[in-house]
Design a protein around this nucleic acid. Structure first.
Length: 568
RNA sequence: CGGAGUGUAGCGCAGUCUGGUAGCGCACCUGGUUUGGGACCAGGGGGUCGAAGGUUCGAGUCCUUUCACUCCGACCA
């Protein structure tokens, strides 16, 4: 392709709202164009990369016996009401009515549609297992879209769904998809990690996320220094934790503790390690149909509440902060709340670390008073894991240290079980001739987000550095001086020959100066550039590698063989 | 939805306080010079100043309403 014929609107200036390298470079290099909050147009370069990424995804899935379909983007809301997600999914689900006043949603994911598709056509175990996928637009009305393609509202996603006659077979497929996904991300040239995850709004159990390691990632993941263990902070677990500091010896008593509303202050006041303090956190939990209630979470003072775990522990849709006034209304004293003295009707969840714990100090649910000598041995309560794993905690698998890192979620696979097939009545006849609900798995890859993830991992201060499999073009030919007939002639000839050999070549034939074209090459980031410039007088041209910008002089006669050997 | 802010040429901004010919840089077009690191000279095109209403002889500027977008917190591929 000739640059003079391609739409590549590169710019020197950075859009003011772009902070991430991927966002800045994808826009500056003319891959994408913003059209509204979280909405982007793909220009020719962006579309080429998108197709490449998509093709790798499809190629590996097809090899793994998955079948591609394409489902409707606009979905009748009735499907979502049937599955119960119409309320559960929340504001991200864009709902609207057609001219006949029927409810529709713009698909943010397609479990309902796919289950219905299979339900209508698969009646026997003989047709199983079945793994169907699509690469299609999704729309999620994100509260705050940002970071360019990283978190758009409209985005391209590959979503796959598998159907099985037994749980064992579903788990076999789940493991197989994990391997397939690893192949995909490896081919894309990404440094990633598979981690255990929370299932979120999709539901189900045993889900894993594929995280591209990048400082700009929005997710915190917990990884082990030694072994393979990795988990999203929302689902991470650790070995039991103890405290070396001696427990405070005290008999049960009430203490006057003015202005001691934080764990820190309390720890100083009693000269006690926060491990022996109980932190009581109040949240408002939101449920279906606008219901809400105040819930308390009790944990050791040395720990932090993990909101997703906490939310799951009470099966709520969401947890939100609550004001001191709201607490007071129901008889809770902010800063002095107690896990053992709780007003009527308030639910409380204890962290498992507190089970049978002794020598504790907690609030008295009375202003300026704390209780000491609390003993929870044998105390009956709802104990669940609701704390966040911290850096330095111990790995459950190998007893080494855990640490945090940041990741971009580019894939997520779930073991759904019969979560959707039962409410949607998706059944088949098993070998015994009995009706049975499909066992399902679901598998997602954020295709458009991958473009951003690739750039986050592969760029320098000058621009993009595409990997061979994802680059919009493999090689740029730069004509240094467009008025030099010899340079133009050689460039044209080389361009044609390489094209004939199946190399994707970009010929920069613009009437611009050398520096201008080099900057554009560096910004766009094709893996190689062939500079045809003034050294041509000595029969030499330069082959530049985008990654590292190393240069190699080659003689005119060697251009084709050299390029061909580098490119493949 | 909570808090903060911005809407003026394709992009980045000034002008708004104190009402009086709508500007600058980049980009774009024409001609010329230049050609190994985003060149220079000369000429040129491009705007319902986010929208609606109001005040005024006169509104980008003042008032009211509204919409959109961005940034900081909770969602997710």
């Amino acid at each position: 392709m000739r640059v003079t014929q391609l739409l590549i609107p590169t710019t020197k200036e950075t859009p003011n709202d772009a902070t991430l390298a991927s966002h800045i470079f994808l826009i500056r290099a003319g891959f994408i164009q913003g059209v509204g909050s979280g909405l982007y147009n793909y220009l020719p370069l962006g579309k080429r990369v998108l197709d490449k990424v998509q093709n790798i995804v499809k190629d590996e899935l097809n090899k793994a016996n998955c079948q591609e379909v394409s489902l409707g983007f606009v979905t009748p809301a009735s499907y979502w009401k049937e599955s119960g997600r119409f309320d559960k999914y929340g504001k991200e689900l864009l709902r609207f009515k057609d001219r006949k006043n029927n409810d529709f949603v713009l698909g943010p994911t397609h479990e309902e549609m796919m289950v219905n598709l299979v339900k209508q056509s698969v009646k026997s175990y003989k047709a199983l297992p079945l793994n169907l996928y699509q690469v299609n637009l999704k729309f999620r009305d994100e509260i705050r879209p940002r970071f360019g393609l990283m978190r758009g509202r409209e985005f391209l996603m590959k979503d796959g769904y598998s159907f099985h006659a037994s749980k064992e077979d579903m788990q076999r497929e789940f493991a197989y998809m994990e391997e397939t996904y690893k192949k995909i991300f490896t081919r894309l040239g990404l440094d990633f990690r598979v981690v255990e995850a929370d299932s979120g709004a999709i539901g189900g159990s045993g889900s894993k996320e594929f995280m591209v390691i990048a400082d700009s990632g929005e997710d915190t993941i917990v990884v082990c220094e030694k072994c393979e263990y990795g988990a999203n902070i929302e689902a991470a677990i650790r070995a039991e934790k103890s405290c070396e500091v001696e427990p405070p010896e005290a008999v049960y008593a009430k203490f006057h503790t003015p202005d001691t509303t934080t764990i820190d202050a309390l720890s100083k006041f009693f000269h006690v390690d926060p491990f022996y303090l109980i932190k009581t956190v109040a949240k408002k939990a939101l449920f279906d149909e606008g219901e809400s209630k105040i819930v308390l979470f009790a944990l050791r003072g040395s720990e932090e509440l993990q909101e997703v775990k906490a939310c799951n522990s009470i099966d709520a849709n969401e947890l939100v902060d609550i004001s001191v006034e709201e607490l007071a209304e129901v008889g809770l004293v902010a800063g002095y709340m107690s896990p053992t003295i709780v007003p009527e009707g308030i639910e409380i969840v204890f962290d498992t670390m507190l089970k049978d714990a002794t020598h504790l100090i907690c609030g008295a649910n009375e202003a300026d008073y704390h209780l000491v000598g609390i003993d929870l041995k044998g105390y009956e309560a709802n104990y669940q894991d609701i704390v966040a794993v911290q850096e330095g905690d111990t790995c459950v698998h190998c007893a080494n240290k855990l640490r945090y890192t940041k990741g971009i979620e580019v894939g997520h696979i779930f073991q759904l079980g019969t979560q959707y097939s039962v409410p949607l009545g998706a059944n088949f006849l098993n070998e015994q001739g009995k009706t049975q609900a499909f066992e399902m798995g679901t598998y997602g890859i954020g295709v458009s987000r991958l473009l951003a993830a690739i750039i986050e991992q592969h760029h320098d201060e000058k621009g993009c550095i595409w990997t061979k499999e994802t680059a919009p073009f493999t090689l740029s030919i730069i004509i240094s001086n467009i008025k030099d007939q010899a340079q133009v002639a050689l460039a044209e000839e080389t361009y044609q020959t390489l094209k004939d050999n199946g190399v994707e070549v970009l010929l920069d034939d613009r009437k611009e100066r050398f520096g201008f074209k080099m900057k554009d090459f560096e910004l766009i980031g094709t893996p190689f550039a062939l500079v045809i410039g003034k050294n041509l007088a000595d029969g030499l041209v330069e082959l530049v590698q985008r990654d590292g910008l190393s240069k190699e002089s080659i003689s005119v006669g060697d251009i084709i063989p050299t390029v061909m050997s580098q490119v493949w």
